[in-house]
C-alpha cells in the first residue's frame, strides 16, 4: 500500500518586491504512513502553511515531488480531492449561509449521501446552532464547522492548518478531542501548529520546521528521550540544610536560590523518594524536558510564539 504522503525535496522561493528572495520551503522531504497523526511544528513564518499548500496541490513547488495516496496532486482530480479533507487557516465559508446550509453545500460538492451533513454537525456539536449564520458563530464554533466541512466527504487523509490558533484554552481542548476521534477512526491526519503542547498531546510523529527546513522528525517521546535532558525538580528553599542539598544532588547540578532549590537529575525517582522521606515537598514541581526544549536543541534558538 502506498504511503498517505510522500514528499521529496520540495523547494519554493518567493520573490517579493520589498522582501527580496524568501526561501519559504527549502528542501523539505517527509513521509506520512496511513493512519498516522503527523504534526508539522514550527513558529510563524517557518514555512508550514506553504509546505501544506504544496502538498495539498494548491501551489506548485519550484522543484520536488509530492505523492498523495500514491498520486500526484496535479492536475486537480476529483478522484483524489474526494478522498481529502481540508481545513484552511481562514474559515472559508459561503457568506450569509447558516451552519446547516454551509455543510449541505459542501456535502453536495463532495457528493456525500443525504443526511451526512446533519451527522457531521452532530459530530462537532453544532446541531443546536444549525440555523445560525456562520458569521454569528464563535471562533471555536466556526473552527468546528470548518472541521465538519472537511470531514463531510468521508476523507482518508485530513489536512488541518493551525485549527486551534486564536482559540481559548477550553475551545482548544474541545477541538483536540475531536481531532483524536477523527484519527481514531483510521483517518490519516496532518496537523500544522505552533503550539508545543498541541503537538505533544496529539501527534504520533512531529516534524520540527524552521526557516523553510525540516530540522528533525520523531515522536514527541522520542525527541525528549534523544534530548537526554535532566529532570528539573524544584522545591521551596529552607526545607533542607545546605549539606543535605549537596548530598541529594550527589554530584549532579543543583541551584540553591533565595526562594527555591532546583535539582537537575537523571534519576528523578531516587531524588523524589529521598525528598519525600525528608518531608521536603513544599512547592514541589517536577518538569521533564518537553518539545520546547527539543525545539531549542534542534534549532539552536529559543521558542517564540
Amino acid at each position: 500500500m502506498d504511503a498517505a504522503i510522500e514528499v521529496a525535496d520540495l523547494r519554493k522561493t518567493y520573490r517579493g518586491r520589498r522582501t527580496g528572495e524568501v526561501r519559504a520551503v527549502d528542501g523539505v522531504s517527509f513521509r506520512v504512513e496511513r493512519g498516522e497523526f503527523f504534526g508539522i511544528l514550527g513558529p510563524n513564518g517557518a514555512g508550514k502553511t506553504t509546505t501544506l499548500e504544496i502538498v495539498e496541490g494548491l501551489r506548485k513547488p519550484d522543484s520536488g515531488t509530492v505523492r498523495l495516496l500514491g498520486r500526484s496532486p496535479w492536475p486537480h482530480s476529483p478522484e483524489l480531492t474526494g478522498r481529502l479533507g481540508v481545513q484552511l487557516q481562514a474559515s472559508s465559508f459561503f457568506e450569509f449561509l447558516t451552519a446547516k446550509e454551509q455543510i449541505e453545500t459542501f456535502a453536495e460538492l463532495y457528493g456525500a449521501a443525504k443526511g451526512r451533513g446533519d451527522e457531521m454537525l452532530d459530530l462537532v456539536g453544532l446541531t443546536e446552532h444549525a440555523d445560525v449564520r456562520c458569521e454569528k458563530l464563535s471562533g471555536g464554533q466556526q473552527q468546528r464547522l470548518s472541521l465538519a466541512c472537511a470531514l463531510v466527504g468521508d476523507p482518508e487523509l485530513v489536512f488541518l492548518d493551525e485549527p486551534t490558533a486564536a482559540l481559548d484554552p477550553q475551545a482548544r481542548r474541545n477541538l483536540w478531542d475531536l481531532m483524536r476521534a477523527i484519527n481514531a477512526e483510521g483517518r490519516t491526519v496532518v496537523l500544522t501548529t505552533h503550539y508545543m503542547e498541541e503537538a505533544e498531546a496529539l501527534c504520533d510523529r512531529v516534524a520540527i520546521m524552521d526557516a523553510g527546513k525540516i530540522k528533525a522528525v520523531d515522536s514527541p517521546a522520542g525527541f525528549v528521550r534523544a534530548l537526554d535532558a535532566p529532570t528539573r525538580v524544584t522545591i521551596a528553599a529552607g526545607q533542607l540544610s545546605e549539606e543535605r542539598v549537596k548530598e541529594l544532588a550527589s554530584g549532579e547540578s543543583v541551584t540553591a536560590g533565595e526562594t527555591q532549590v532546583v535539582f537537575e537529575t537523571r534519576d528523578p525517582r531516587k531524588l523524589l523518594t529521598a525528598l519525600a522521606s525528608d518531608g521536603a515537598l513544599e512547592d514541589l514541581s517536577v518538569r521533564t524536558a518537553n518539545l520546547e526544549d527539543v525545539f531549542l536543541h534542534v534549532t539552536g534558538r529559543e521558542w517564540r510564539e
Partner: peptide
Amino acid sequence: VDWKRDKLLRRLRLTPASV
C-alpha cells in the same frame, strides 16, 4: 477581495468540484 480574505476559492479548489 472577499475571496482573498476568507480563501473560499482556495478551499473549493480542494473539493472534487472544479474551479
